[in-house]
Simulated assay, not measured.
Amino acid sequence: MSIQWFPGHMHLTRKAIAERVKEIDVVIEMLDARLPGSSANPLMAELTSGRPTLKVLNKQDMADPVRTARWLDHYNAQPRTQAIALDASDPAPARALIDACYRLAPLRGGMVKPMRVLICGIPNVGKSTLINTLKGKRAAKTGDEAGVTRTESRIALADDFYLYDTPGMLWPRIFVPESGFNLAASGAVGKNAYDEEEVAFELVAHLKVFYPALLQARYRLGLTPEALAQTPDEELIAVVGRQRGALVSGGKVNLQKAAELLITDFRVMHLGRITLETPEMFTGWMKAGLKADAERAERKRKLRDAGHIRAERLPKASAAAGAAHKVR
Results as ranks from 00 to 15, higher is better:
Phe210Pro: 02
Ala259Lys: 12
Val209Thr: 11
Val112Gln: 15
Lys291Leu: 04
Gly110Lys: 07
Asp159Leu: 01
Leu228Met: 07
Arg116Asp: 08
Phe181Asp: 13
Ile84Asn: 01
Gly250Ala: 11
Ala156Leu: 09
Leu97Ala: 01
Leu203Ala: 09
Leu97Cys: 02
Val204Thr: 10
Ala306Ile: 07
Lys252Met: 11
Asp99Ser: 15
Gln4Gly: 13
His308Pro: 04
Ser318Cys: 09
Leu134Gln: 13
Ala184Glu: 13
Ala259Ser: 09
Val189Ile: 12
Gly190Leu: 12
Ala200Gly: 13
Glu19Asp: 04
Met281Arg: 04
Ser2Asn: 06
Gly289Gln: 04
Leu12Ala: 13
Met1Leu: 14
Val240Tyr: 03
Val239Met: 05
Arg296Trp: 14
Thr224Ala: 04
Val125Glu: 02
Ala320Lys: 13
Leu236Glu: 11
Leu107Asp: 06
Thr149Gly: 05
Ile309Pro: 08
Asp305Gln: 08
Thr151Gln: 07
His270Tyr: 02
Lys15Leu: 11
Val148Ile: 12
Ala259Asp: 10
Pro7Met: 03
Leu303Arg: 13
Met115Leu: 15
Pro91Gly: 06
Glu196Arg: 12
Asp195Tyr: 02
Lys135Asn: 14
Asn41Glu: 06
Gly8Ile: 05
Leu214Thr: 01
Gly168Glu: 00
Thr142Arg: 07
Ala217Leu: 14
Phe282Arg: 06
Asp165Tyr: 02
Gly143Asp: 07
Thr278Ile: 06
Ile98Asp: 03
Gly284Thr: 03
Tyr162Ser: 15
Glu235Tyr: 15
Asp165Trp: 00
Ile309Ser: 09
Ala140Val: 13
Gly322Leu: 00
Ala105Asp: 01
Arg103Val: 04
Trp285Ile: 01
Asp90Asn: 06
Asp305Lys: 09
Val209Leu: 07
Glu198Lys: 13
Lys141Thr: 10
Thr81Val: 04
Ala319Arg: 15
Thr224Ser: 08
Val176Thr: 00
Ala92Cys: 02
Arg244Thr: 11
Glu312Thr: 09
Tyr211Ile: 14
Ile98Cys: 01
Ala88Thr: 04
Ala184Val: 14
Ala324Glu: 08
Gly222Met: 01
Val66Ser: 13
Ser186Arg: 03
Leu214His: 05
Glu226Asn: 05
Asp293Cys: 03
Cys120Arg: 00
Asp165Gly: 00
Val56Leu: 11
Ile155Arg: 05
Ser179Met: 08
Ile237Thr: 04
Trp171Leu: 08
Arg154Lys: 09
Ala185Asp: 01
Gly251His: 07
Arg267Glu: 04
Glu197Ala: 09
Ala258Leu: 05
Lys291Ser: 01
Thr149Lys: 06
Lys137Ile: 04
Lys22Pro: 02
Gly136Tyr: 09
Gly245Leu: 08
Val240Ser: 02
Arg218Phe: 15
